[in-house]
Amino acid sequence: MSTTDYDAELDACGLYCPEPVMMLHSRISDVAPGKILRVIATDPSTTRDIPRFCQFLGHELVSHVEQGDQFIYLIRRGE
């Protein structure tokens, strides 16, 4: 992924539930509606928590990939 694939980034590596989602909640408000936030995390619980966060708050989970011990999400901010 290049920086042209997303507009902002949140590095939550080394943090554990509930910190990644709490940081995501704060950081997504800095992203304009329709723009993409890239989230990198190492906590496996994010595979459950981030999709639920997106569904509950109306954001689009564009992609989720696992690279080694990292979970990488692209989230398009909803209105």
Score class of each variant (00 low, 15 high):
Ala8Arg: 03
Ala8Trp: 07
Ala8Ile: 03
Ala8Thr: 11
Glu9Pro: 04
Glu9Thr: 15
Glu9Gln: 14
Leu10Ala: 04
Leu10Lys: 00
Leu10Thr: 03
Leu10Asn: 01
Leu10Arg: 00
Asp11Ala: 06
Asp11Lys: 02
Ala12Ile: 05
Ala12Asp: 02
Ala12His: 01
Ala12Trp: 01
Cys13Leu: 09
Cys13Lys: 13
Gly14Pro: 04
Gly14His: 04
Gly14Ala: 05
Gly14Arg: 04
Gly14Val: 06
Leu15Pro: 01
Leu15Ala: 06
Leu15Tyr: 13
Tyr16Phe: 08
Tyr16Arg: 14
Tyr16Lys: 10
Tyr16Thr: 09
Cys17Arg: 08
Cys17Gly: 09
Cys17Asp: 14
Cys17Gln: 08
Cys17Thr: 15
Cys17Leu: 08
Cys17Ser: 11
Pro18Lys: 12
Pro18Ser: 15
Glu19Ser: 08
Glu19Pro: 02
Glu19Val: 14
Pro20Ile: 09
Pro20Phe: 07
Pro20Lys: 05
Pro20Glu: 12
Pro20Asp: 10
Pro20Gly: 05
Val21Met: 01
Val21Lys: 00
Val21Leu: 05
Val21Arg: 00
Val21Tyr: 00
Met23Phe: 14
Met23Asp: 15
Met23Val: 13
Leu24Asp: 02
Leu24Cys: 02
Leu24His: 00
His25Gly: 13
His25Leu: 09
Ser26Lys: 12
Ser26Thr: 08
Ser26Arg: 12
Ser26Tyr: 09
Ser26Trp: 06
Ser26Val: 09
Ser26Met: 13
Arg27Val: 15
Arg27Thr: 14
Arg27Tyr: 05
Arg27Asp: 12
Arg27Leu: 11
Ile28Leu: 09
Ile28Val: 14
Ile28Arg: 00
Ile28Pro: 01
Ile28His: 00
Ile28Ala: 01
Ser29Pro: 01
Ser29Lys: 15
Asp30Trp: 08
Asp30Val: 07
Asp30His: 14
Val31Phe: 06
Val31Glu: 12
Val31Tyr: 05
Val31Leu: 07
Ala32Ser: 15
Ala32His: 10
Pro33Asn: 06
Pro33Thr: 09
Pro33Tyr: 10
Gly34Ser: 03
Gly34Ala: 05
Gly34Glu: 07
Gly34Thr: 07
Gly34Tyr: 08
Lys35Phe: 07
Lys35Leu: 12
Ile36Pro: 03
Ile36His: 01
Ile36Trp: 01
Leu37Val: 02
Leu37Pro: 00
Leu37Ala: 01
Leu37Arg: 00
Arg38Leu: 15
Arg38Asp: 13
Val39Ala: 09
Val39His: 05
Val39Ile: 15
Val39Gln: 12
Val39Ser: 13
Val39Asp: 12
Ile40Leu: 12
Ile40Gly: 02
Ile40Ser: 06
Ile40Asn: 10
Ala41Glu: 02
Ala41Asn: 04
Ala41Arg: 01
Ala41Ser: 11
Thr42Glu: 03
Thr42Phe: 02
Asp43Leu: 08
Asp43Asn: 11
Asp43Tyr: 04
Pro44Lys: 07
Pro44Tyr: 05
Pro44Cys: 04
Pro44Gln: 06
Pro44Ile: 07
Pro44Met: 07
Ser45Glu: 10
Ser45Asn: 12
Ser45Cys: 05
Ser45Gln: 08
Thr46Tyr: 01
Thr46Gln: 06
Thr46Asn: 04
Thr46Phe: 02
Thr46Ala: 05
Thr47Lys: 14
Thr47Trp: 03
Thr47Ile: 04
Arg48Gly: 06
